[in-house]
């Protein structure tokens, strides 16, 4: 089987599995909305204040939703042995892993982008900024998925690892968060958001190219234990 074919099959399989477990794919969305809801409740409903924190709120909610979904990335495959088969397969594990993370992003993170404008409007962000918010999330959330996948692979042998995962992942999420929110903030202030968006795109390229080998190395270590 050619490489492209097997990557396509893996992607289709992952998407199908996600479809069959719709409830599980829905959970990050609910989580995202709930976190967005907590901010006005905790900070107060003053419109100016909410408008000022809206970009940060949406970004942090998206970031936490990605974090919560990471553990499912390799866990079931590791436990039922299909990960071992993937490694034994005569294909580059790096590419397989990249496909897996992409499929995961497609099914669990991309739907967030549909909800983000609604939450942004609810928080009082003006509608001409929405397109920048969506662009920043479109560029930034794959960074979160790929970087987070490294940590998910590193803790594959440890059951019940939620806190450790957060400790490993959150410091690495800082650059994406900073540039994502500052692009939106710039747009809201009427300054050009291009600079942060370009840097976000650079982070995306870096994480797409550098993280799959690290994920593959970590999974190999985990399986060979």
């Amino acid at each position: 089987m050619s490489t492209l074919n097997s990557l396509f099959f893996l992607c289709r399989r992952d998407v199908l599995i996600a479809f069959r477990h719709r409830q599980q794919a829905l959970n990050p969305l609910l989580f995202f909305v709930l976190v967005c809801l907590l901010f006005p409740l905790g900070i107060g409903a003053s419109a100016d204040l909410l408008k000022a924190i809206a970009p940060g709120t949406i970004w942090i909610a998206a970031l936490l939703a990605v974090l919560m979904s990471l553990d499912s990335l390799f866990r079931t495959d590791f436990e039922d042995g299909s990960l071992e088969l993937m490694i034994l397969e005569n294909q580059s594990l790096t590419l397989l892993v990249a496909t897996r993370v992409f499929a995961h992003w497609l099914m669990t993170v991309l739907p967030l982008l549909l909800l983000a404008p609604i939450m942004a409007v609810a928080l009082g962000l003006s509608s001409n900024v929405l397109i920048i918010l969506l662009t920043s999330l479109l560029l930034g959330t794959p960074v979160l998925s790929f970087v987070g996948a490294i940590a998910a692979a590193l803790i594959i042998v440890i059951p019940h690892n939620g806190m450790l995962l957060a400790l490993l992942v959150l410091p690495l999420y800082v650059p994406a968060l900073i540039f994502g929110t500052s692009a939106v903030n710039n747009a809201a202030l009427g300054i050009s958001p291009e600079g942060p968006l370009y840097i976000l795109a650079a982070l995306l390229v870096l994480s797409l190219t550098l993280s799959p080998p690290a994920i593959a190395a970590a999974l190999r270590t985990g399986v060979s234990q």
């Binding site: 940590a151 590193l154 690495l172 993280s211 190395a217 270590t221």
Partner: peptide, 20 residues
């Protein structure tokens, strides 16, 4: 595992530093 994590961190430290 720790070695992989440290290398990932090493790549990230300059990025984190300059973004902050």
């Amino acid at each position: 595992f720790v070695s992989i994590l440290v290398l990932v961190g090493t790549v990230n430290i300059p990025i984190i530093h300059y973004s902050v």
